[in-house]
Computed example of a mutant assay.
Amino acid sequence: MALPDHPEPGPYASYPSLVDRTVFVTGGATGIGASFVAHFAQQGARVAFCDIDTSSGEALADALGEAHAKPLFLSCDITDIGALKGAIADARSAFGPIAVLVNNAANDRRHSIAEVTPESFDAGIAVNLRHQFFAAQAVADDMKARGGGSIINLGSISWMLKQGGMPVYLTAKAAIAGLTHALARDLGPFGIRVNTLVPGWVMTEKQRRLWLDEAGLKALQAGQCLDGEVMPEDLARMALFLAADDSRMVTAQDFIVDGGWA
């Protein structure tokens, strides 16, 4: 398979502190997550990632392994917290203590207020919010033992824009700002930094296929200050900075990558 969002050589930063650092990415088989996996591998990190999309995850690991240390793919449903903790334990066994956690996994399925049930509400929170807390809990002792680490929670500008048509998703994504602040305060004394990476409308294959119609394109052009499309690699490059020692005094912050929309 083609590598996702492969950066052009030359103008982008390299981070020596990421070499051999153990990174765990949730939802890393496709889209933005696959770009995180690829970019960390290209920096020389030891990358483990999980996803329910086994075929895409295995293909990505194989493709990246042709030029870099092969990432470890772990098939896992992140809404099953026991399975998620097991995947993190497997990554630790393979590569050593987790130094960087990228809480990427999410599902922005559209839904109306009327159709939400208690069960679907809980499912939306589970896939978009709950796992971020428990993944952070599972890596905290690793980071404490090594004297620090970086947790990167993925948010969204959707709730900032008051976007309609997916109220449970917006609720979960808004809550991630509070989660980041809480974790940053409690883990800060151990040198663990926690930040929120907030994407705008990122042009993944899924977004183009499902939602980028003429009206969406007009909204994108009207909303962004910058011309062009926000791409997965734009998020990945910010994540590299937040994971590296270059951002050693940065925590409890939101980093919005949206072309100036929010």
Rank of each mutant, 00 (worst) to 15 (best):
109 R>A: 14
88 I>Y: 14
202 V>I: 15
197 L>I: 05
253 Q>E: 15
245 D>G: 00
193 R>M: 08
181 H>C: 04
50 C>Y: 11
49 F>D: 12
112 S>I: 11
209 R>Y: 07
86 G>E: 08
48 A>V: 12
95 F>T: 07
90 D>V: 05
127 V>H: 11
253 Q>D: 06
247 S>N: 08
87 A>E: 01
19 V>I: 11
103 N>D: 11
145 A>M: 06
242 L>K: 08
77 D>L: 10
106 A>C: 02
101 L>N: 04
210 L>K: 15
183 L>N: 04
163 Q>F: 09
84 L>K: 00
247 S>K: 07
260 G>E: 08
191 G>H: 03
131 H>Y: 02
200 G>Y: 01
199 P>A: 02
193 R>Y: 04
204 T>I: 01
180 T>Y: 07
252 A>Q: 13
152 I>Y: 02
249 M>S: 14
24 F>A: 06
102 V>N: 06
71 P>A: 04
218 K>C: 12
68 H>C: 13
9 P>A: 11
102 V>I: 15
25 V>E: 05
172 A>C: 09
152 I>N: 04
194 V>A: 02
19 V>T: 03
112 S>R: 15
131 H>V: 03
197 L>R: 00
43 Q>G: 09
21 R>I: 07
208 R>G: 00
54 T>G: 04
188 G>W: 01
118 P>R: 06
34 A>M: 06
194 V>G: 04
144 K>A: 03
189 P>E: 06
144 K>D: 12
9 P>K: 05
197 L>N: 06
186 D>F: 12
76 C>P: 01
102 V>D: 09
163 Q>Y: 11
232 P>C: 13
164 G>Q: 13
53 D>Y: 13
75 S>D: 08
248 R>I: 07
23 V>L: 12
178 G>H: 07
29 A>Y: 01
83 A>M: 02
115 E>G: 05
62 D>S: 15
133 F>R: 06
220 L>Y: 10
31 G>R: 11
252 A>C: 08
211 W>I: 13
174 A>T: 00
141 D>H: 05
135 A>G: 10
139 V>L: 12
54 T>N: 02
108 D>K: 13
43 Q>L: 09
171 T>K: 01
69 A>K: 13
217 L>W: 13
24 F>K: 03
147 G>E: 03
109 R>E: 14
95 F>A: 15
234 D>N: 12
181 H>F: 07
98 I>R: 08
238 M>N: 10
232 P>I: 08
48 A>L: 07
177 A>G: 10
152 I>Q: 04
56 S>W: 01
